[in-house]
């Protein structure tokens, strides 16, 4: 019985860490929120926590026998018929409860999976021209002599058009930041432009939110189609500025 209790306690402890510990830590990092572990992930976490506990308690022969003993006794001893029925009833009720929770009607909106950086097409059409995104490079990157001038001009384009959402620090916190969902990209973050090639940015800026593939939920993004307002040259210069200002290097591989 000792091992079975040990197993239950261990599983409970890990459950509490996931159920309460992680949201508490998240709440500490982001005040005013209670970042729960999403149910879908919680199920997988718990499956492997239970598996880990069982593996730990059964690798040794004595421990495995001791863990299985109460289960064997309940199911194997004729004199424990009453207890057996109670255990079976609890398991059946629990199964019923889980099933009911999964099939009961819900008015909640369906889960939407939105890819933040969806894959670009191999080529894109802008200003009536076809651009091969597999080989496309920033023409101003190679022009070392005029680099500063071009980056500065890109900055002017940024502050005339982009900073309202993406912010004057390029951190995604512009004036309209809180009014849009998904939030404007934070270019300072190492997880955005720093891990993308310049051709990706060219495609994203040029075709804006409506140019996103379905996995990127184009109906949600507020990003304008900038090819309607900016020239090709201006877009390349603004890209140069984004990397120059943030200190990131575009991905080249």
């Amino acid at each position: 019985m000792k091992k079975l209790i040990q197993a239950v306690i261990l599983i409970l402890v890990f459950y509490l860490i996931l159920k309460v510990g992680i949201p508490a830590l998240g709440s500490f990092l982001h005040h005013g929120t209670w970042p729960v572990v999403p149910t879908a992930l919680m199920r997988i976490y718990m499956f492997f926590v239970v598996a880990g506990v069982l593996l730990y308690l059964t690798f040794n022969e004595e421990s495995a026998k001791e863990l299985g003993k109460p289960i064997k006794e309940i199911y194997g001893s004729p004199e424990k018929g009453g207890l057996r029925m109670i255990v079976i009833a609890i398991i059946a009720l629990f199964g019923g409860y889980v099933t009911y929770q999964n099939v009961k009607p819900s008015f909640e909106a369906p889960i939407e999976l939105r890819s933040i950086h969806p894959a670009p097409p191999s080529s894109v059409e802008m200003w009536g021209k076809t651009y091969n995104l597999m080989t496309l490079t920033n023409p101003f990157r190679a022009d070392k002599a005029n680099y500063e001038k071009n980056a500065k001009e890109g900055g002017i384009v940024f502050f005339k058009n982009c900073f309202y959402c993406h912010g004057d620090k390029l951190d995604g916190k512009g004036h309209y930041y809180s009014g849009v969902s998904p939030l404007p990209a934070n270019f300072v973050d190492v997880g955005t432009i720093a891990q993308l090639q310049e051709s990706f940015l060219f495609w994203r800026i040029g075709t804006g939110g409506p140019g996103l593939p379905k996995e990127g939920a184009p109906w949600r993004s507020a990003m304008p189609i900038w090819q309607h307002f900016l020239s090709e040259e201006e877009i390349w210069k603004v890209i140069l500025f984004l990397y120059d200002y943030t200190g990131h290097s575009p991905r080249t591989f």
Partner: peptide, 12 residues
């Protein structure tokens, strides 16, 4: 990218 219900998105 986590799969979250709209309620969970609000909580997070």
């Amino acid at each position: 990218t986590l799969i979250m219900t709209s309620k969970e998105v609000t909580q997070v």
